[in-house]
């Protein structure tokens, strides 16, 4: 019996491996609309207020599949044209710690969906809402704040930079080319 126990445990472990992550590629209306307004500022008269919580955000934020889809869409929808591979260009850098309109996934989602007056276009109706969530999740991951198990892989092509979760700190980067 003693000999069987580890075997049994191993078998159970192996069976657990059969558990497959469900990829919800169709919009999950049951997960909440994700349309709760997110303020751009932290300042609110009347003291502290509860932070917004949204099921939808949680479903996308640290999900490897959605992050990788977000990475693909980031190139497909020409986000990379303005924001490069996170370093910015016509648009601001996304991989630094500076968030002009807020760094919460809800804020990023709102930025992509509704645009911002100083040049960010509105993708409302142009991109399905779930894809906006995927994009927002990927954009948030660019600054290296998602679990490394979920972060999308490195760009292999020109090795423009290491994967999003392995970026060196800006301060430690070589000064002169």
């Amino acid at each position: 019996m003693n000999r069987c126990l580890p075997l049994l445990l191993f078998a159970m472990l192996a069976i657990a491996g059969c558990q497959r992550e469900e990829r919800d590629t169709r919009p999950q209306s049951a997960l909440g609309s994700g349309k709760q307004p997110t303020p751009v500022t932290v300042l609110t008269p009347g003291g502290e207020r509860p932070s917004p919580s949204d099921n939808k955000a949680a479903a996308f934020e640290a999900n490897a599949f959605h992050l990788s889809q977000g990475k693909r869409l980031f190139n497909w929808f020409n986000c990379s044209g303005c924001h490069a591979n996170g370093g910015g260009g016509m648009g601001p850098a996304l991989m630094d710690k500076k968030w002009i309109y807020g760094g919460a996934i809800e804020s990023i989602h709102a930025t992509i969906r509704d645009g911002r007056p100083n040049g960010m276009p509105s993708f409302r109706d142009r991109v399905p809402d779930d894809q906006i969530w995927e994009l927002a999740a990927f954009v948030r991951s660019l600054s290296g704040n998602v679990p490394s198990s979920a972060a999308p892989g490195r760009d292999d092509d020109m090795m423009v930079h290491p994967s999003e979760n392995r970026l060196p700190n800006a301060a430690t980067l070589g000064k002169s080319p």
């Binding site: 990829r23 590629t25 919009p27 399905p128 894809q131």
Partner: peptide, 16 residues
């Protein structure tokens, strides 16, 4: 109407 029902995982999204 439902590309994900016909080809699950394809890159054509379900559009509202």
């Amino acid at each position: 109407a439902d590309p994900q029902g016909i080809k699950p995982g394809a890159y054509m999204p379900v559009v509202d």
